[in-house]
Design a protein around this nucleic acid. Structure first.
Lengths: 212, 212
DNA sequence: GAATCTACCAACACGGTGTCGAGAAAGTCG
DNA sequence: CGACTTTCTCGACACCGTGTTGGTAGATTC
């Protein structure tokens, strides 16, 4: 959860007692509407009316439409970290677990599809959204980089590979890009049923395989 | 160049004789301003004044701000196709030429950095921009897929790999994402000086290397 | 029961978009 | 040449979305 200097939750002026239902109603309405149309097609008025308040009152709860989405992204940061850490514990076979990491990343993104889409849209114009999203990415990159390093230390990974962190960034960004293309039904896009297999192949060969 | 049913260049109402300098001035001003700030921070008025005309007159040449950027993207489609085809002729060693493809893709994107950024920003909200950009991607995907198929036919590529086209999509999208992160100075991002090396490693191992 | 705080909104100012209708300038043709 | 058309231009307008102001009603606190 991101808090400002006064300790209040993002966008909420006074965290003291209540009015929480309104705030939650706005967030729920935002998620609901993002399932129907893009962020750009949703106005503050839509959000306000959907939450049963007037537009000016909306500004009592959030400083802007963007702040609502930022709060939504916050949740994914937390959720992604939690789910990833859970998967770390049940590690077992290091080679086979790459696939599990990809699968979990896919599932996390898919579950919050509407918010991921909105995050991408907002990231195009909003610095804070970009920064926040980069925290999601950084979490995955660190996770993957650490595990590549472990494989290098174990002598299992290919020695000719680039530095673990550089490789991890490329692999995670590939996964993000491939998944995003699928979720927004872009074309060209990898076939959804093969996505995890394709990514798994590229990850494993890049980490363990020797170049010709 | 994209033309509508009447045969006119995108956005230009009457293609008959002239006024071309104005149109070119708008496009140049757009490219110039995109080097300074993002598309969202540029208004039609900025474009018009920069080209020495009033805002309503702008609408004589282009139906919207978006259409200007679309025209700019058009140029990249053409440019990218041309440069890629040139590189195809001087093929030589198939294994070593992957790196050359990546290098060319990097150079093309870098040369039109401002437009690529604008294309990404516009793609978040504009269907036509997304469709147009997907043509750029499709060009690269077909190119890479064909060459993977050739390597498979030659018996050089790994047989355990996913279908060539699926693999090509993932690899091209990785390259796009990695390059984009570098150009907009995102973090995490692959180190610019190592980008081509890292991508080359992943491509070659994914195409030729065996999974552990 | 006065002061304070929470929750609310009508009305406004502002900035951006896209259109309309009225010209000016420049080419075309009898 | 002078009427006619086409190209090009812009002032003024209608519209929409944002964020702010100023004020109110109800609950809470002392």
């Amino acid at each position: 959860m991101v808090r400002d200097m006064a300790g209040s939750v993002r966008g909420r002026r006074a965290p003291r007692v209540s009015g929480d239902e309104r705030e939650r109603a706005i967030l729920e309405e935002a998620e609901r509407l993002l399932g129907e149309r893009s962020l750009g097609e949703i106005s503050v008025d839509d959000l306000a009316r959907g939450a049963g308040i007037s537009r000016p009152t909306f500004y009592f709860y959030f400083p802007s439409k963007d702040a609502v989405v930022l709060t939504l992204i916050d949740r994914i940061v937390v959720e992604a970290d939690r789910v990833r850490d859970e998967s770390l514990q049940s590690q077992a076979d290091p080679v086979a677990s790459w696939r599990e990491s990809i699968r979990i990343m896919y599932a996390t993104f898919a579950e919050h599809g509407a918010t991921v889409r909105a995050a991408a849209e907002l990231g195009a114009t909003n610095d804070e959204a970009r920064a926040l999203w980069s925290r999601v990415m950084e979490g995955w990159v660190e996770h993957v980089a650490e595990r590549i390093e472990a494989e290098v230390a174990r002598g299992a990974a290919t020695p000719a590979a680039p530095p673990p962190r550089e490789l991890a960034i490329a692999l995670v960004q590939m996964a993000e890009r491939v998944m995003h293309a699928i979720f927004i039904a872009e074309s060209p896009a990898v076939d959804a049923t093969q996505a995890v297999d394709v990514l798994d192949h590229v990850w494993r060969t890049a980490i363990y395989g020797a170049a010709a």
